[in-house]
Design a protein around this nucleic acid. Structure first.
Lengths: 239, 239
DNA sequence: CGACAAGTTGATGTTACTCAAAAGTGGTGG
DNA sequence: CCACCACTTTTGAGTAACATCAACTTGTCG
């Protein structure tokens, strides 16, 4: 059993995160809770959606960590983004849409059907829209990180982004948050090798900027970290 | 005056591209042409939208090349995607949206207001949705390219993507298409230096795979190029 | 034709990768 | 409770890919 920074469990984080994107009425929160009462389970390391698979129905991740990824035939992998509690999967404007990336699990994961945007109410529809917009912003940030940042900067930027996103779900306090992934997964996220991730991490630890043990990460000096990579929060304005 | 592969000028490419994403009724095409009759002009190297600027109204790029980009305070730049004829700018699901990247021009550019999705008709609304979905797919591809491909592979993958996208607007034939950018811009796109882009380009030329002179690029052996980078077209199914 | 931007080349430096092995960690069954 | 196993993290040594710096050449446009 992990010692989480906040005693947020189950679907609370997902609801908190959507609620932080747009105010939800009581009936909207209730609709979420009802959908969450019949969750789908996926074990660690499973594929939720394959690349090219048609998107059956919109879903919300309730618990655990997923990721979007692309796999090359020679074994190279690139993780394109993380799917955290409250994040959406399988949303598309057109009905015949196809997933442009695979989606897999990094931990055990609980999903549920997302209440249909059309019937969900204004608050939920807005929360969905904001969530998808934020996802796109993080994707732009990810591309900029991969293209123009050093390994050191990529790591710092990544930790800051995780802190920001998990905080919006109530899963981070005082710069401390769960980070239940291996260094190899982080390497596949940041376009590095796990050996180099390890060495860069040691630098950050030596400098007293970041701790990360047993699946729990801690930013010792968030402000200094932000300055180092010109970090501007995506969610600043909507909080 | 450039010798374009096809005599497509003005707004025709933009309409062709949207029409390839979803069939347009005559009145929808007419609405596009009408909007295009009062275009906005931007000169080369200008900023169309600043990062963080609120999105006033949806627009369509009619002619020329734009790009989304992020600029770092020390001068580093990362181009996050190209905006080509028929591509959309400033679309957002929520009204108070903000641009998460800057958008600038790489050539002289003509824009027009996009007929409002709600009133535009089903065909246009579907074309918009498909266009935004394709943009996202290309962004995922871009991230994977930056994270896990060698300089050589990034170049090949990039040329293939440009050919695919321009072909959907009728701006590429037989692997030949306009590429009105400098090697430095390409470097900022692929996360490389212009020196290294130049050297890699020479390899590709020596191998007889790619030509690129005077703003016109030509793929000599598209099939071989596709195999080298496992290129799967984004638009294959919707054509 | 002249000026400035873009492309090209060479020499050298650095970041990050590769390969290989050792040490640590956590979970499982006997 | 311990032994074992697989996985993860850490360390070292050598290498490759790409960056940097600087100059020179070519192309373009007024």
């Amino acid at each position: 059993m992990r010692a989480l920074p906040l005693p947020v469990t189950g679907t609370e984080a997902a609801v908190a995160r959507l609620g932080s994107l747009a105010p939800l009425r009581a009936d909207e929160a209730a609709a979420l809770m009802k959908a969450a009462s019949t969750p789908l389970k996926f074990a660690t390391g499973r594929e939720i959606i394959a690349e090219g698979q048609s998107l059956a129905e919109p879903r919300i991740l309730l618990e655990g960590w997923g990721c979007r990824l692309r796999i090359f035939s020679d074994g190279r992998r690139q993780i394109l983004g993380f799917v955290l509690p409250g994040d959406l999967i399988g949303f598309a404007r057109s009905r015949d849409a196809i997933s442009s990336t695979a989606i897999g699990t990094l931990t055990n994961v609980l999903l549920c059907r997302a209440p249909e945007p059309e019937q969900a109410g204004e608050g939920l529809a807005l929360a969905y829209a904001h969530s998808l917009a934020a996802e796109k912003s993080y994707l732009y940030r990810h591309a900029a990180r991969l293209g123009r940042m050093s390994a050191y900067e990529r790591m710092v930027d990544f930790f800051l982004e995780m802190e920001e996103r998990l905080a919006s779900a109530g899963l981070a306090t005082a710069g401390t948050f769960p980070l239940p992934i291996t260094q190899e997964v982080l390497a596949d996220t940041l376009g590095l090798t796990s050996v180099h991730v390890n060495r860069t991490l040691q630098t950050l630890r030596r400098e007293g900027l970041i701790e990360w043990h047993g699946g729990i990460a801690r930013l010792r000096d968030p402000e200094q970290l932000r300055q180092r990579v010109e970090y501007r929060p995506v969610l600043a304005h909507s909080r």
